[in-house]
């Protein structure tokens, strides 16, 4: 199997992040690497830049990584996590403007076919386009 774009799911809630990842694995399959993180390090609601970086590393692919987020801080912390990657990898990670569950399933479906990062992002964002 050729490399596919990896998927990272970032939610304020670890349950939502895990549940979304479960849906992707069940609906799309295991050929796409999916990593997730949710909650702050104390176990409460929130997002954490180091945990997002860990998830990006876990889902890493030479074709890139698409990040799906839920509310506000998940997006800003994900952007901060991308900023903290070494420059060579920074351009290979995109945060998608898409609903977290639908976007993750659709991004993974597109990624499974071997699409580029730009194509994966475009498909995830198709839902927000209208």
């Amino acid at each position: 199997m050729t490399e596919t774009v990896g998927i990272v799911i970032v939610s304020h809630s670890s349950d939502i992040a895990k549940g979304t990842a479960d849906m992707v694995r069940q609906m799309v399959g295991t050929e796409v690497k999916v990593a997730f993180c949710g909650g702050n390090p104390d176990g409460g609601l929130g997002t954490s830049v180091p945990l997002i970086i860990d998830a990006i590393n876990a889902a890493w692919s030479p074709k890139g990584v698409a990040v799906l987020v839920d509310l506000g801080g998940a997006e800003t912390n994900s952007e901060m996590a991308v900023e903290m990657l070494e420059p060579a990898r920074r351009d290979l990670v995109v945060v998608c403007n898409a609903p977290i569950v639908e976007g993750a399933v659709m991004a993974a479906t597109e990624a499974a076919g071997g699409s580029t990062l730009a194509q994966v992002k475009a498909v995830a964002e198709e839902l927000s386009a209208d």
Partner: peptide, 14 residues
Amino acid sequence: HARPAVKLTKLAKK
């Protein structure tokens, strides 16, 4: 529904 749609799309992409 969603799951069949994903399967159909994945197959089409091959």
